[in-house]
């Protein structure tokens, strides 16, 4: 963890919406990696914790031209004044200057949920209940991630625990630099279609930096000026328009 010598990275994702099939492997891998338990039945669809969540959108055309697209949306790790950082009364959200990752620290959070209101991507989730696992499963949790108690907010942090593990491995081998594929979040690793790619946006030779420069790339709610670190790729116009959310609401019928 040296300072001035290392140039700062900006970790980001490039998610190809033309490859995503909505299989849900990324959501499952995320829940397993982050020790997210099954909430009680009263949780329903809205109170569960889905640090990465795949939404379904339709093109609005009738059968048989109806098409669906799936959007995996997690924390966008905004690069320019993340709204959640600004509003937190506890300084529980911090942008790591070395990696560009916006870190949510449950240890500081007091659960006011102001950040949940501030996040334009609805990427933050509240622990309404204490975690409870089926008997025996508490011994088969990811030891690198501490379970959170009720009353705190959490969100995707690009599997920061894996970054720590990668740094530890590098230190054990006497290196101070990480190899390109040594640190990948769980969702990136899990995607069978390789729709989610991860890397350093600040390194112009990396795959995600290259993908971010393509004309297919767009960001969600770009007009807000949050400069997310997550870019989405699609050739389809109607999918690209979803990023602006200025069209008719998803699922609304056309008449």
């Amino acid at each position: 963890m040296s300072t001035a010598a290392a140039s700062n990275s900006r970790y980001g994702m490039a998610i190809d919406l033309d490859r995503c099939t909505g299989c849900g492997a990324c959501m499952v891998a995320c829940a397993v990696e982050n020790n997210v338990p099954v909430p009680p039945p009263e949780a329903g669809e809205r109170k569960g914790i889905t640090l990465l969540r795949v939404y379904r959108a339709e093109n609005g055309r009738p059968f048989p031209e109806a098409e669906t697209a799936h959007l995996p949306i997690g924390c966008q790790h905004c690069g320019e004044e993340p709204p959640c950082v600004t509003v937190c009364p506890q300084n529980a959200v911090e942008v790591d200057p070395e990696t560009g990752i916006v870190g949510q620290i449950p240890a500081r959070c007091l659960g006011c949920r102001y950040c949940m209101a501030a996040c334009p991507y609805h990427a933050r989730y509240f622990n309404w209940w204490d975690p409870a696992w089926p008997a025996g499963m508490e011994q088969a949790l990811n030891p690198d991630i501490a379970p959170r108690m009720r009353g705190v907010v959490e969100k995707c942090n690009f599997c920061h625990g894996r970054l720590q593990a990668a740094k530890a491995k590098a230190a054990a081998e006497g290196r101070s630099e990480l190899k390109p594929d040594e640190y990948v979040p769980a969702c990136v690793e899990a995607c069978p279609a390789r729709a989610i790619r991860f890397g350093d946006l600040a390194d112009s030779s990396s795959e995600v930096a290259r993908l971010a420069r393509e004309p297919r790339a767009f960001r969600l709610l770009a007009r807000l000026g949050t400069e997310p670190s997550v870019v989405y790729l699609s050739d389809r116009d109607w999918v690209r328009r979803l990023g602006d959310a200025a069209g008719p609401a998803l699922g609304e019928s056309h008449g």
């Binding site: 963890m1 040296s2 300072t3 911090e94 942008v95 790591d96 200057p97 070395e98 990696t99 990752i101 870190g103 620290i105 449950p106 240890a107 500081r108 690198d144 991630i145 501490a146 942090n157 920061h160 625990g161 720590q164």
Partner: peptide, 12 residues
């Protein structure tokens, strides 16, 4: 030692 550490480097 002038070594940076962000919150996330030590809290998880």
């Amino acid at each position: 030692e002038d070594v940076a550490a962000s919150c996330q480097d030590c809290h998880r």
